[in-house]
Design a protein around this nucleic acid. Structure first.
Lengths: 145, 145
DNA sequence: AAATATCCTACTAAACTTGTAGACTATTTA
DNA sequence: TAAATAGTCTACAAGTTTAGTAGGATATTT
């Protein structure tokens, strides 16, 4: 299960993606709209900024905004920043690899399955971007259908 | 990431799968071979027994053994018992469903992706069984190749 | 200078993880 | 039938992580 932190991050980014190119958005506005504790969200957005997903502006008229167009940021990238490894075993992780204690990997009967799980998961999370989880805005809905 | 508990469970089952139909195996033997703390392993095996994955025999000549043939038990089933939900979001879990706080699911822009992740993961974990993670035994290796 | 809004570090309570302890029950063997 | 064997079960405890809070520092605008 994803931590609350990661869920909050995704919701906030979903909101910011919908507002892309419309100027900075206040933390307080995101927090209110997405029902996220303000101070917690502060930490999360700062972390995403330090990881180059977001950018920000201080002072009046300031706020947070996506650093790049929504389709440029994959969900895998976001999740690695806030959640950590995507793989289910340390010895099978691409970005957070750690040798399993007492596991002779070349003979390990278990890691093969979890390489398959990892690849199946990444196939989705690397291809989906913030554009795909963009919050629906009223303007975006085609009422003519 | 899977908890140590789940990793231990899989390793123990991998060992028991290789010994299927060869009579009960002592907890202490599994613990020693797989480098798992004995008392911790006790709890895990008991849980697997209560969930009908394992069966046991008390007293001399006793121990644990698979209740069914290795290919009958999927990894998904094991993981749901010891780890809990396989899905990454509660609102997308098949066996541990919970409504997301403040999430209007029919409009939620996020859960669609995690349904895809869930299905991709389950495609592997439901099809792989204890037979697939069975520990290699010397007898099973074909030296004639 | 005052107001606004992000930046940053540190702290805390609660929950979960990873074990451990010890007494109890069932089975086998001498 | 007593002793030894081996699983059963509940409770506890230390360590770690999660989720959230506090409050001052810094940058920008008016």
């Amino acid at each position: 299960m994803l931590s609350k932190k990661t869920q909050y991050a995704l919701r906030a980014l979903s909101f910011l993606a919908a507002r892309h190119d419309q100027g900075p958005v206040l933390i307080t506005e995101i927090a209110e709209q997405k029902k996220i504790p303000v101070k917690f969200l502060e930490n999360i957005l700062l972390e995403l900024k330090n990881a180059d997903i977001l950018d920000s502006k201080k002072g009046r008229g300031g706020g947070y905004f996506l650093k790049e167009a929504p389709h440029k940021t994959s969900l895998a990238r976001v999740m690695r920043i806030v959640e950590g490894p995507i793989a289910l075993l340390p010895c099978v992780s691409l970005y957070f690899y750690q040798k399993c204690a007492d596991c002779t990997e070349d003979v390990c009967p278990i890691n093969g399955v979890f390489i398959q799980v990892r690849d199946a998961t990444l196939k989705v999370l690397e291809s989906k971007t913030l554009e795909d989880i963009q919050e629906m805005t009223l303007e975006a809905i085609d009422f003519s259908i």
